[in-house]
Design a protein around this nucleic acid. Structure first.
Lengths: 157, 157
DNA sequence: TTTGCTGCAAATACTTTGCAGCGTT
DNA sequence: AACGCTGCAAAGTATTTGCAGCAAA
């Protein structure tokens, strides 16, 4: 079931390339697949290393360029957790599944994902997106929520 | 009233410097004051230009270093809106006042702040912070909420 | 064949670091 | 006097750009 979801999702992305007059090349497919198969937020370097296993001749520039396209189409989110480099994540399921929020330690930069949303949370965000879309004439694609603070270990250090 | 709030807030920050064995120098005061007096999220460059008016001899390195301290103490938030540089903002009022959320256009990078929270929103975030703090043993200092999408002009372009 | 994609190397841009001198406490 | 702060220049990273060759449609 998970596989199915991912596959059909990739299909949509592949389609997007074609309808935008862009070519769907092997490196691009590989990058999208890697993003589909992780629950993390890989950095460019990490994605590059992974693609490199399949296509040793690929350059990191291509990874940057492909991610840029995906970000501009609103299919991938570019995160910055203050590490001095970007991290990327597929926006697979705008209304729920796979989506998560973050707790970030400002001291050690540890990132905790949480996905066990309370119902109020999901409802509120749906309401908010509708309200803000109308008020600002903004086509909202996704949202992020991050709580910043000090993690257990850093408090006790 | 606004002035009063800002002043008392700066006071707390100034105090933090002293109690941490750091010196409260003129450039540092100037940087904090600049952050207090803006509703934007100035970049390092912008802060530097501003301080420079008062202290022409100041170097941009000092701005970086001061902001680092403030971020590590949880007094300032470092934003990244995908422009390739960071933006900074005082975390003045953890439970409401001055606090805002963002709508960000993934195409033109325009940022819209909104502050007219609905009551449910404020309540939910208080509830969430309590729940997450307990569950993950995390001392939450603040949160950010960002909605990403395409703005009016970019849709019509 | 046309037009887009790619890797490489070089160029940018932002941020961090080393160090010697200066200013606070 | 001691220790922290500062500017400058240099170093370090991440990301972008120019270009010639290659490949998909």
């Amino acid at each position: 079931m998970k596989t199915k979801t991912l596959k059909s999702n990739n299909h949509d992305i592949f389609f997007k390339f074609k309808t935008n007059g862009h070519r769907l090349t092997a490196p691009r497919k590989a990058i999208i697949t890697i993003l589909s198969n992780t629950n993390n937020h890989p950095s460019v370097e990490e994605i590059y290393m992974e693609v490199h296993k399949q296509y040793p001749s690929i350059g990191i520039t291509t990874v940057y360029r492909t991610l840029d396209l995906l970000v501009n189409w609103g299919l991938v989110h570019k995160f910055d957790f203050g590490e001095g480099k970007s991290r990327y994540e597929l926006i697979e399921h705008p209304n729920g599944l796979g989506h998560h929020h973050h707790l970030i330690c400002v001291n050690c930069k540890k990132i905790i994902n949480y996905t066990d949303f309370i119902n109020d949370e999901i409802e509120l965000f749906q309401k908010l997106e509708t309200r803000l879309s109308n008020k600002y004439n903004f086509k909202i694609k996704h949202h992020i929520v991050e709580f910043y603070g000090i993690c257990e270990e850093c408090i006790n250090k």
